[in-house]
Amino acid sequence: MTNMSLGKFAGFTAAVLLCASHVALADNTPTDNIQGFGPQTFAELKTQFAGKPFVVSLWSVDCAPCRVELDMLGQMKKADPAFPLVVISTDSIDKREDAADILDEYQLADEVTWMFADSFVERLRFSIDPGWYGELPRSYFYDAEHNMMSHSGILTIEKFKELFPY
């Protein structure tokens, strides 16, 4: 750690304290808040939200309609920082710089979000929802009992409130 700057050390400490990041802690440690999404990640997230409602939003760098939804989610998160939102990019985590730029644009860069981190994307999609065809944007609304409703395509704020009345 002798070569690690003070700033990076602070970032390192924050990463460990705040989110127990799985990101490799080397000198080239990414400065974003993006974590790798693997085959077990979704089950782990559901455990974290046990007994609580939450929303999942899936997007990708190459999905134009997704930007509309990210814009809305960024504003919602800004209005209520405690809003239980899980944002997952279906791009390979190799594209994290592209994703980080876009998340920053929609005020979501400070949130912990996820990116697909396994080239066998079919298995990752299946782990989220076996009935999902892969279309984007895709959203899931879990109530406190983790009954789930899904939505494909751009969400309006009205539709969002209808699906997630919390």
Binding site: D62, E135, L136
Partner: peptide, 9 residues
């Protein structure tokens, strides 16, 4: 198929 999304298909 009513969808305002990218099917990539």
């Amino acid at each position: 198929w009513q969808i305002d999304a990218c099917p990539h298909h």
